[in-house]
């Protein structure tokens, strides 16, 4: 995950989080370009928030295995 330190205002955060939880279209668009998705949804961002969202997108790392070994799933199934 990113190590950005800028926080959003609570109302802006809540609005985006709500869309992410409820709108599949918004989630798709957000994954492609969060700034454009947010602006298209009519949410206004301050300059710092826009900058931070852009940096979030560019700093994303997507990695992980495509497959797995069945024994390792079991071994890692505890709550932690």
């Amino acid at each position: 995950m990113s190590e950005l330190t800028i926080k959003m205002s609570s109302p802006t955060f809540d609005e985006i989080a709500n869309l992410l939880a409820t709108s599949p279209e918004f989630r798709e668009a957000f994954a492609v370009d969060p700034v454009v998705a947010v602006q298209d949804a009519g949410i206004r961002l301050g300059p710092e928030e826009t900058d931070a969202l852009s940096r979030l997108a560019s700093s994303r790392k997507m990695d992980g295995p495509e497959g797995f070994d069945d024994r390792l799933v079991l071994c890692s199934s505890s709550g932690y």
Partner: peptide
């Protein structure tokens, strides 16, 4: 399909964790 969805999930979680006040 999984990779595509993972991109979406990762975006959601990165946003939540990074920007939550």
């Amino acid at each position: 399909a999984v990779r595509h969805h993972f991109g979406i999930w990762h975006s959601q979680l990165a946003f939540f964790e990074t920007f939550h006040p």
